[in-house]
Design a protein around this nucleic acid. Structure first.
Lengths: 142, 142
DNA sequence: GTGGGTGCAAAGACTTTGCAAGACG
DNA sequence: CGTCTTGCAAAGTCTTTGCACCCAC
């Protein structure tokens, strides 16, 4: 789906969920939805501060937190101590490059042995994380 | 394998890898290896500070970092901004309880569509994260 | 209009670092 | 004994919060 359509849908859903649709929230959502690299709050702020007047790092943090609460964005599981976000909220998985740290989406839902999980609890969703070397880094290694 | 055997093996490996085997490092490793809840540095420190004289939070952080570098412990992927560690370094997956936040080990390696991953890069390892409600929380819900 | 949203600055949580003293090999 | 490790305190990084002002509904 193209970006502007997703932004329009975002406005509708946000309003329906009781969130006010402010220019800052639109900007944050558009920024995160247009990227596939799962940016942190800081990175989104860096991208926006030139383009959008009246945006602060605090607002980016608060917007991400609000959107996460209502399920319009998701956190990405990582090993690092910085929180990263993803505007794709439907099930999918991630590939983390061990060299450059970039995180890629992969359209995969892991198949796991149900019995093993149920010995621990009742699963709601499963996602995979693959570590490896991405194509870009591989080609630089020549 | 029982705990003391793992600790002995740890000493051997650590020495072989060029790390000095200090009482603090042994204590940190024993603590993390004896638990299955993937503690953070702070939690390990809380456990140790009563029992071990001469242990500081700084040392716990530095120990975890050193052990991670040589592959004797691993970070656990999480959505939160606190780093958690695991003394199980062979491939396995995790179950995160959406209610209490506890993280459980599950002996599963996800089966994923290889083709989909290879469009992004060359995978080295894959792990799954399942979110759900653990048995303990489920039984409290009555 | 009003309740939620925003910016700023300050505080809070988690982690790393500099330095002098100490201990493993 | 030399080098790596430790503890303390201070600094650094990432994130949240208090408060006064503002704007979407």
């Amino acid at each position: 789906m193209n970006l502007e359509k997703r932004v329009e849908e975002f406005k509708k859903k946000a309003r329906a969920l009781g969130l006010k649709v402010t220019p800052q929230r639109i900007a944050v959502y558009r920024a995160i939805a247009s990227r596939h690299d799962h940016p942190s709050a800081e990175e989104l702020y860096e991208e926006l501060k030139g383009k959008i007047e009246g945006i602060s790092l605090t607002t980016v943090y608060r917007t991400l937190s609000s959107l996460e609460t209502v399920g319009l964005v998701q956190r990405v599981p990582t090993l690092k101590d910085k929180v990263r976000y993803d505007a794709r909220v439907e099930p999918h998985s991630h590939f983390i490059c061990m060299k450059c740290g970039r995180i890629y989406d992969i359209d995969v839902i892991p198949q796991v042995n149900r019995k093993e999980i149920e010995s621990v609890g009742e699963p709601v969703s499963c996602t995979a994380i693959c570590h490896g070397i991405c194509k870009e880094c591989r080609s630089e290694e020549v």
